[in-house]
Structures are given as C-alpha cells and as structure tokens.
Design a protein around this nucleic acid. Structure first.
Length: 314
DNA sequence: AAGACGAAAGTGGTTGA
DNA sequence: TCAACAACTTTCGTCTT
C-alpha cells in the first residue's frame, strides 16, 4: 500500500477507493475518527483506531522506545486496563500443576482479588459509570477520543466528589455531552437524551452544573461542526459541503449566528447550499437528520437569504 | 400528490427586575 | 420568584410544481 503522509496525522491510502464516488483519495481524520473521502466527503468508516506509534520518532532507537507495547492505558476501564489477574489455570510460574491441597487457597485468592479490585463505593461507581458511558457512546456511534475524553472527565468529577447524591446516569450523560462538544463532534442534548432515556432538561442541568464546578471552558458549538455528519447521512457530495461551509462563514459576518440553535443554522445553510448546487433534497429530509422542524429551517433560511443577498432560483 | 410556505398558538429556557 | 422575551415546535390551510 502506497502511503503518502500529509500534515502529521492524516494518511492518504491511494490503493483504497471510495465506495460512493470511486475516487482514490481517502483521508484518515483521527480527530474525528473517521475515514473520509476527500473528493465527495463520504464517511467510509467511523470509529478508527490509531494503530500508529504514540509519537514521532527520528531514528530507529527512538522509534523502539516510543512504539506502543502492550495495551495502551485505557481511561474507559475503571482501573485503566492495568490490572493483574490471577490466572484461571491451576499451574504455577514454571507451568507445573499446583497440587490439589493448594487449590483451595488459590481459589480463595481469586475470589478475594475479584472482591478487592472493585472494592470501595467510589470504585464501584466509577466502574458502572464507565460502562454506562461506553454503552451510550456506542449507541451514538461516537469515536474513541470522545469516549476517552468523557471517561477522563468523569474521573475528574468523581475524584472531586462534586456529584455525590446526583443521579449517576444523568451525570454520565452530561459528561458525554460535554466531551462531544469538547471534541467538536457535537451531538444535541436531545440525541443523547433519547439514547440514555433521560429528559434533555436533566442532562442540560447537570451539564451546566458540572461545567460551572470544574470551570470547563467550552466554546459555543459552531454550525460548522454538524456539517460533515449531516452531509454524510444525507449522502451529499463535497461541493455541497464546501458551499454550506462558505455560507456559514459569511453568516458569521452578519449577526446571524448568535442566539440561534447551531443545528438550525447548519440545517438552513445546508438547505441553501443544496438549492445553489441544484441538488434535489426536501426540507423534511434535512429536518430529520438535523433534529429541527421544517418550519425552523424555513425561518432561518428566509432570514439568511435576505440578509446575505443570496439569489435562489425557485 | 408532494413539497414549500406561512400564520397562529403553544412550549421550554433565559434574563432581568 | 415572576413576567417578558426570543427561539423553536406543532398544527393546519394554502399555494406551487
């Protein structure tokens, strides 16, 4: 496979072809954990795992030192995946069978290790919260970094003991919401609420509480961040995506963004872009993937077209 | 007939007194 | 704590393609 390196993190695999447009320019975007076609924007694969070495290395000696050996530290498992477990085989260090009179002792050791590993309340809470986080992020198809970020955040608030007495599920959902925003892979409160079976009001409240307590500096979500996902779900090609981003950028110039729901702006800009690119797609279809109503798309769209002087042929 | 449009009434959240 | 407010939703009738 002929790999060409661009910018540090992205690799073009020229041998692979996009199943959508056939172009052979697939890009690995590790920040979003997606394999994306550079020509049409089709997301070929989600949830990529970075198998590469941890750092850049300049000679073979350095590479040996920095290559990943064993499993990486994993924040999504309560003991970071670093636990040692007493083996199930009844053999000793040399591979000899352990005599029956010592088996009972080994059995007791295993039992107590299991009990001690997830021993106190905080550990148990952490373990089940992380399981919960993982379940939610699978349901939402979230990339690995978001899961890791969420796990780190949860560890932080657990260690600060600021969420005692709060519903753990709500806190986990709020943490996941925060992680999504921090990684610029936004999901709406409603999307998370639906998967977690928690009213979005609760998640929002917990999110505000947490971000106030640990001084999370999270910028407001930009409509831009929704575009790759929407385009991919609607199977729109790259020029629509580029056009949409252009429209969003020009909308920033005219006080059209603040105060409005970012997903509404994203949906409206996407709609305008499809009209400009002569792509037939209904407001209804966009409204479904964007999670806003057609009416809202219309209102934003009218406003944008008026303020930005965009000519849209009917 | 499907989609776009827009009016009107209702909902949930924010803000400021 | 309450009212005012803007964004957004729901619903529904009308127009356009």
């Amino acid at each position: 496979m002929n790999n060409k390196k661009i910018k540090n993190k992205q690799l073009i695999y020229e041998a692979d072809k996009c199943p959508e447009c056939g172009a052979s320019h697939l890009i690995r975007d590790y920040s979003r954990a997606e394999l994306v076609c550079n020509k049409c924007g089709f997301v070929v694969e989600e949830d990529l795992i970075d198998h590469g070495p941890e750092w850049r290395a300049f000679d073979s000696d350095e590479r040996d030192k920095k290559t990943r050996v064993g499993a990486p530290v994993n924040y999504t498992i309560h003991d970071k995946g670093l636990s040692t477990v007493i083996g199930w085989q009844n053999r000793d260090y040399y591979g000899r069978y352990i005599p029956p009179r010592n088996r009972a002792q080994l059995f007791r050791l295993r039992k107590w290790q299991k009990r001690i590993r997830i021993s106190d309340g905080t550990e148990r809470n952490l373990a089940s919260a992380l399981t919960m986080l993982d379940k939610l992020s699978s349901g939402l198809n979230l990339p690995r970094i978001v899961r890791e970020t969420a796990a780190m955040l949860y560890r932080k608030i657990a260690s600060l003991k600021i969420c005692r007495g709060r519903n753990m599920e709500c806190v986990a959902a709020a943490v996941l919401y925060a992680a999504c925003r921090q990684c610029n892979v936004p999901r709406t409160l409603r999307e998370i609420g639906e998967i977690a079976n928690i009213p979005k009001k609760e998640i929002g409240r917990n999110y505000r509480y947490i971000s106030r307590k640990i001084q999370l500096r999270i910028l407001p979500t930009s409509p831009r961040d929704y575009i790759p996902r929407f385009c991919s779900q609607l199977k729109l090609d790259n020029n629509v995506r580029v056009k949409t981003l252009e429209i969003i950028n020009s909308a920033y110039g005219e006080e059209l963004i603040s105060g409005r729901g970012p997903s509404s702006i994203a949906a409206a800009c996407l709609y305008i872009a499809t009209l400009l690119c002569d792509v037939r797609i209904t407001q209804r279809e966009i409204s479904i993937v964007a999670g806003v109503t057609e009416v809202t798309i219309r209102n934003r769209y009218k406003e944008l077209v008026r303020k930005l002087d965009i000519e849209v042929s009917a």
